[in-house]
Design a protein around this nucleic acid. Structure first.
Length: 317
DNA sequence: AATTGCCACAACCGCCACCGA
DNA sequence: TTCGGTGGCGGTTGTGGCAAT
């Protein structure tokens, strides 16, 4: 959306004046002022920047406008399936830590991700009549939406193979994550994974020692602390290995591995192809008709209620 | 054609942490 | 140690666009 740029700067009647400060939508002139000033003087010291640039805005407003809209490295356009998948995964790990999640989606802002979550994901949770943070909804994401997203990604990549696929940058942002020191968390089996080669899937991921910053990341979404979203029977990295690509799977394995170790669980086992050994998807999941969080793809009338799902497959919860 | 309701997104608000004086 | 300024973050609200009626 480009409301501010489409806005007639003279239509200021809805803009609120608070003292000498302007509020409401930004005008083209204000944007130009801000961009030019930052180009000449750089970011930071937002309050003084606002005054020096001649903007009748608060420093906060300038900062937000720059970070969320004017920054040149912003990635415009709708959230891709790859990004959706990453958001789901990272949110399952960190909860509503939007800025933290945004750090792993180049060009996306925390505001954008937050809006995506609220407008798409929470909407579907509401349609399913369950809490977005409930285990039920997380299972729907895990067993239904995320595999479907992966299928879409795979199909798109098969149709248009590229040297630097979206999943490659997804790997990059996870692999290069400052919280995931390479030496500490990137198993030797994954050497070359970034080039699209499959890891040595016959070897389990080496045991990791110590804790990481992951352990201190509070999870605000479930109240259960950091929980790997993957089922215990089949680890998430497996799931991701064959369903996505090797590099992303390895990165996912790394992060999940760290969490799993904290919980004294078995290390993730790479190798069994999720696509050849599918997860025991509960009966009814496949018929839900829920592809992803794209607008319009969700026909609430065609799906079962969450109660139906779990009452018919209670052993799967 | 007009109205209504929903959706997505930009922007704001309140709180908090950090930092320097 | 205290305090004010600043910036970051998550939650919430306001608004334009658009589809449905």
């Amino acid at each position: 959306m480009d409301m501010a740029h489409e806005r007639d700067s003279s239509s200021s009647e809805e803009e609120v004046m608070a003292g000498d400060l302007r509020r409401g939508p930004w005008t083209v002139e204000e944007d130009i002022l801000l961009v030019n000033y930052i180009a000449a003087h750089g970011e930071g010291r937002w309050n003084s920047l606002a005054r020096s640039a001649g903007l009748k805005r608060t420093g906060k407003s300038c900062r937000l406008r720059w970070l969320n809209y004017l920054r040149p490295d912003l990635r415009r356009g709708s959230i891709t399936p790859q990004e959706q998948l990453l958001i789901l995964e990272l949110h399952s790990r960190w909860g509503n830590r939007w800025s933290k999640i945004a750090q792993h989606l180049p060009g996306r802002t925390d505001n954008e991700i937050k809006n995506y979550w609220r407008t798409r994901v929470q909407k579907h949770a509401k349609q399913l009549k369950c809490d977005v943070n409930s285990q039920q909804f997380k299972d729907v994401m895990r067993y239904l939406w995320m595999p479907r997203l992966v299928e879409r990604i795979q199909a798109a990549e098969a149709a248009q193979p590229a040297a630097d696929t979206p999943l490659s940058w997804q790997h990059d942002v996870l692999y290069e994550s400052p919280e995931l020191p390479v030496d500490a968390c990137w198993p030797a089996e994954y050497d070359g994974a970034a080039d699209g080669q499959l890891p040595n899937t016959s070897s389990p991921v080496p045991e990791q020692s110590g804790t990481t910053t992951m352990s201190s990341s509070p999870s605000t979404d479930s109240g259960t602390g950091a929980q790997p979203i993957w089922p215990a029977a089949v680890d998430g990295a497996e799931w991701f290995t064959t369903a996505c690509d090797a590099s992303s799977a390895a990165a996912m394995c790394d992060t999940n591995q760290l969490i799993l170790q904290e919980q004294q669980q078995a290390p993730c086992q790479l190798g069994e192809a999720w696509t050849s050994e599918p997860l025991p998807v509960p009966a009814g999941f496949a018929e839900l008709g829920v592809a992803d969080f794209e607008i319009g793809s969700f026909d609430v009338d065609s799906i079962w209620s969450m109660d139906d799902l779990w009452y018919t497959q209670p052993q799967f919860v």
